[in-house]
Nucleic acid binder design. Structure first.
Lengths: 230, 230
DNA sequence: CGCCACATTGAAGGCAGTCAAAGGTGGTGG
DNA sequence: CCACCACCTTTGACTGCCTTCAATGTGGCG
């Protein structure tokens, strides 16, 4: 079945046998969400976590006056809100699909049973949380210690290296979200991001054609990313 | 022995038997650090992690031009750099004692053996990482969505509730670090923090006497913390 | 007593957010 | 097929919070 295959791709379940994955699928509940529908809210009681089967989900915080900070963009085969299993019992943020999405929901107590019975699953969990932690350290560094130009450069280089690894032309890739969403991910707003793109383009570091980005001068971009200005 | 008692207090080792803790102690190496000595550096090869036995340690990032963002202040019985066991193999930040400190160092490979053999230790690890994750989500929210006044208010309320739980007069407590370090923890600099303290004091929300803080108007402080200004 | 790190205050400048408006783009339904 | 509409993007002018720079104040400790 298709759901099984999607689950098997998740890092969280890597190294598990067919049988174990079948078990895991057994306790999950598949749900579909439309774009803009709310999956969960900041502070809401959390009784489980999710694995993304298809589509794209944003996890974000809101400020008092409505500005949004995206914490994480969840692609297929990735889990989210795993940490809610263990800390308090509320979600720490909002989650909402950016595209129509199919998710698998795992109720807390039934999943905890599986973890206890399955050491490999524990280790995967630890590895996943560690990776996430590293992601947040990077995010804190960006927000606190770099200006918008440096954050954007960092992000573009990261995306470029991921896309180079996958396939395709060196240094040409597509943004995975709209620029407005990207602004929110980088801790700024679309107007400011737009100006940052323009500056990088004027300095011949990149070419921007809609969502398609071409890196023209990787060295200069790296310098910019490391937080150098003047 | 005293080291054993300090280890036993760590959440990471809670629920373990005397024997297991003895085992764990067996693979650890005790080290002492002076104030200002570097424990590890951002990007340095990581072959293990630490538990703080006594003293106070800061974990921080540096910007290109030398500004510092404290990620975490480590108090006794807390572990740090645990995540380095599982992601890549470099430390993601700097660590340095704020006071003379005694640490226990656990080499990676030997500790991984223990985790695999001990399910309770895995679960503790997961719980610890989850808590840390929540901490970073809060930090991101602060840095991105709140101004300095709100961040300071949030921090003071958190500290007050921790100290209330411990003992002593309601709403009276001491800062655990210097104001300069606190500024770095809050993603700002001492001058700006000083002005924020002054504003809160002028508005009769708190009284500041050196490191001693008294909360005078908890409701107003909560309002401020939630990110309301004007 | 005097040093040194920490803390406070003032003045000035800059990065980024806000407000406003216009142009672009994709998708949906007629 | 096209026209409309919602949403995204860009540009300009302005404002404000926070950093920078500079100087003075203060407390602990050798």
């Amino acid at each position: 079945m298709e759901t099984r295959k999607a689950l098997a791709k998740a890092n969280l379940f890597s190294g598990l046998t067919e049988l174990e994955i079948e078990q895991i699928e057994g306790i999950g509940i598949e749900k579909s969400y439309e774009k803009g529908e709310l999956i969960f809210s900041d502070g809401e009681k959390a009784a489980g976590f999710f694995v993304n089967l298809s589509g794209q989900v944003k996890v974000y915080k809101l400020s008092a006056d409505g500005r949004e900070q995206i914490l994480h963009i969840i692609n297929p085969a990735e889990a989210f809100a795993e940490a809610a299993l263990f800390t308090g019992s509320t979600f720490p943020a909002f989650a909402e699909p950016l595209t129509p999405s199919r998710l698998m929901y795992f109720p807390k107590d039934r999943f905890l049973g599986l973890i206890q019975a399955n050491p490999q699953l524990s280790l995967n969990m630890i590895a996943g949380l560690s990776t996430l932690l590293r992601h947040f350290v990077d995010l804190v560094e960006d927000l606190s210690l770099k200006d918008v130009g440096a954050r954007l450069s960092t992000y573009l280089l990261e995306l470029a290296s991921r896309s180079d690894r996958a396939q395709g032309e060196e240094g040409v890739f597509e943004l995975e979200v709209t620029k407005t969403q990207l602004a929110s991910r980088l801790g700024t707003i679309s107007e400011t991001l737009s100006r940052a793109f323009r500056r990088l383009q004027n300095d011949n570091m990149i070419r921007v054609e809609g969502r398609r980005i071409t890196i023209l001068n990787r060295e200069a971009l790296k310098e910019m990313a490391s937080g150098w200005s003047s």
